[in-house]
């Protein structure tokens, strides 16, 4: 610092007292540095919790998660309890949610992006979808309870649960499909029209194929949301009983999160149930991890940039 003072000719007094500046500056720089680490720490906080959570789940399920657990039926005795029923129930649920959301979601997205005139009606549907995405899942559960379970008389069956879940995740599919369709460049459509194709032919043969990776990614994310969602199914009334493995869409069923729920609240009564819950969580998280990885791979590998 002194050297710098020397540089500025000593006889001509500088208007800026560099000593004062230096003093203030170093405090500000120090504060900035400290805050930098504090912010890093706070960013890591979430990750630390994540690690603890995963560690707890893995540690609790060691010795409980094995082939027998995956292939046995539900049982009140912790040693013999298994989740094959819940796994099959989850698959059944996906059999409904997958096709229903795919048709509804992609159809809605095509309509909004390709057919609907931008105007009041368009923005009405759009706002409606945004609002639906923010409705708490339990409210969807009540809708399902009232409409599908009571009015349609489906009872607490796979079809009632599946349709409720489909409506719940529909906004995810619609929004991601819309984004995918919007990112298809206009010149592809024009080239198709130039070849004499009609609008629907263009959509079917040009737009949808090139939007497919984005649409698929959204579908997978929606399904993984549906697999982990519990609240609507609790409301619909999946009983805590030992349910036989479902054989048709109208049978009652249970899914992995429901099993976690019942075992967690019953762990007050039987300690071992906490381990069963942890083992089920590990299965659920593994499934979700695989699904999300697939979604990321599809997005990175097949998404074309124009």
């Amino acid at each position: 610092m002194k050297d710098m003072n020397m540089d500025i000719a000593p006889e001509k007094k500088s208007y800026i007292d560099l000593n004062v500046v230096q003093k203030k500056m170093s405090a500000r720089i120090l504060l900035n540095k400290i805050v930098n680490y504090l912010f890093l720490l706070s960013t890591l906080f979430g990750l630390i919790v994540l690690v603890i959570l995963l560690y707890r789940v893995v540690a609790d399920s060691i010795g409980w998660l094995n082939i027998d657990f995956l292939t046995n039926k539900l049982s009140t005795s912790p040693d013999r309890a298994g989740i094959v029923g819940a796994i099959i129930g989850t698959v059944w649920l996906m059999i409904i949610v997958g096709p229903v959301t795919m048709v509804l979601g992609i159809g809605t997205a095509i309509y909004l992006e390709e057919y609907a005139k931008k105007g009041r009606f368009h923005s009405f549907i759009q706002t409606n979808i945004t609002n639906l995405a923010g409705v708490p899942s339990i409210v969807f559960g009540l809708l399902g309870l009232t409409i599908f379970v009571r009015v349609f008389g489906f009872g607490s069956s796979i079809i009632a649960g599946g349709l409720t879940m489909s409506l719940l995740v529909l906004p995810i599919v619609v929004v991601s499909a819309q984004e995918a369709i919007r990112s298809v460049p206009q010149f592809l459509r024009e080239a198709s029209y130039g070849m004499g194709a009609t609008k629907w032919q263009t959509i079917k043969n040009v737009v949808l194929p090139s939007a497919l990776p984005g649409v698929l990614t959204g579908m997978i994310l929606a399904l993984s949301r549906a697999i982990g969602e519990t609240a609507p199914l609790v409301v619909i009334g999946i009983p805590a009983l030992l349910i036989p493995i479902p054989g048709s869409l109208f049978d009652s069923f249970t899914v992995l999160p429901m099993q976690i729920y019942y075992w967690t609240i019953d762990s007050v009564l039987v300690d071992e149930y906490a381990h069963l819950a942890a083992a089920t969580i590990l299965v659920l998280l593994t499934v979700l991890f695989v699904m999300n990885s697939v979604a990321i791979i599809i997005r990175n590998k097949f998404q074309k940039r124009y």
Binding site: L53, G228, T230, P257, Y261, N292
Partner: peptide, 9 residues
């Protein structure tokens, strides 16, 4: 992305 039931547990 972690299901809320897991957070509940």
């Amino acid at each position: 992305g972690i299901p809320t039931i897991v957070y509940g547990f």
